[in-house]
């Protein structure tokens, strides 16, 4: 049996920090300073990468396709559905009563842990966040 990673207890925290946009270097530093854990950047990178693999999409048939089948009506693409007939099954989010996607991830801290940005970094972050929001449905 494989030995569990020493980063395993910090998995949730690391995920939150990455979502906040913290670099691997910053996370290594936080782990060392705040949690007394010495770990290399490469180890952290591998730990995140392995756990970042997207699960394979599970495809499900459209609801109206199933209803049509039940009613005995003919189906246009019964044996060879087109990509348009297939939709990945959502695994979370509001539509299915799952957990709400959380906005603004920030880790609670009793000590100062804010990262001041230079004007250039600030402008770049603001642009990135604006672009992200434009891309949202």
């Amino acid at each position: 049996m494989m030995k569990p990673s020493k980063l395993a207890p910090y998995q949730t925290l690391i995920a939150a920090w990455r979502q906040e946009g913290k670099s691997y270097r910053e996370i290594v530093q936080i782990l060392r300073d705040s949690h007394g854990l010495n770990v290399g950047r490469n180890t952290l990178h591998s730990f995140v990468k392995v756990r970042s693999k997207r699960p394979r999409a599970v495809y499900t048939m459209l609801k109206n396709t199933i209803e049509l089948r039940a009613s005995g009506d003919s189906l246009k693409h019964e044996s060879h559905p087109t990509p348009a007939d297939l939709q990945p099954l959502k695994t979370g989010g509001n539509d299915h009563g799952g957990p709400r996607p959380k906005r603004f991830n920030y880790t609670y801290s009793n000590t100062y842990n804010l990262t001041r940005l230079t004007p250039e970094q600030k402008a770049a972050l603001e642009k990135k966040l604006e672009d992200q929001q434009k891309g949202e449905p």
Partner: peptide, 15 residues
């Protein structure tokens, strides 16, 4: 710390 930090900017832009 409200105008120029990474965390506060995200707060303003996301919430």
């Amino acid at each position: 710390d409200y105008e120029d930090t990474h965390e506060a900017i995200r707060f303003r832009k996301e919430l």
